[in-house]
Design a binder for these strands. Structure first.
Lengths: 115, 115
DNA sequence: ATCCAAGTTCGATGATCACCGAACAGTACG
DNA sequence: CGTACTGTTCGGTGATCATCGAACTTGGAT
């Protein structure tokens, strides 16, 4: 896949339609994404597990919700700029956008995860 | 005023009915309180101004809301454990519960304020 | 007592949100 | 092929939330 929106002759600008670029991540959106117990649990699970598929997260967190509810949470975390999703086959693997978040708000993620 | 709920002969336990004790402050509640642009503005104003009355905050932030809306935001921030309110006469002065928040989640407040 | 300034509280309203079930799409495997 | 697995999307529902206006309380000043 290639989300090339650049002009011919100029350096191509790859714009991932799913993930917001670093500079467009908003603090209030991040905070709102993390201000939900289930999503905070998801974040912590990914933090300790490393890259994990959605079904893995579902098992490890023990969150009782349905698939659609989980999918909703993933979407919120992804659109907020907290999680990065890697699509491989029919599975989806999540990682924390640590470098991006640390660049924008140093110490924020560490403070939230060290609890 | 005295919120003495202790038993006679035992060390009195002062329980402030307005502010949650440090150990009862919850992370998701704090994040939810800060995940609102107006409240984040209020927090930053108090952070730079120091102790400020509600009307001072209202003027300095330039938030356009009504008095009741502002009062609502103060209540959310206070009940979340973010702001401490000092009542003097008919005025109310707000400070950030920095020590308490730094104890629970070191670096969180700094990360949010350094933006 | 009178007036005003500072905040709170009480409905009410419109918006947003978390959650669900059902239907759907894509991939992997027999 | 069909079946199972993984995850999304869509409508709907009940709950929560931000905002407002109006009425109220309290305190200070004249």
């Amino acid at each position: 896949m290639s989300w090339d929106t650049g002009t011919a002759g100029e350096p191509p600008v790859l714009h991932d339609p799913d993930h917001p670029p670093v500079e467009e991540i908003e603090l209030t959106t991040v905070l709102a994404a993390l201000a939900e117990p289930a999503r905070l649990t998801i974040l912590r699970t990914v933090a300790t597990t490393g890259e994990a598929s959605c079904s893995d997260i579902w098992e490890r967190t023990g969150l009782g919700g349905t698939k659609s509810t989980m999918s909703h949470h993933y979407k919120v975390l992804r659109e907020a700029g907290v999680l990065h999703m890697r699509y491989v086959g029919s599975r989806k693997f999540a990682t924390i956008r640590r470098a991006d978040l640390d660049t924008r708000w140093p110490g924020l993620l560490d403070a939230v995860l060290r609890d």
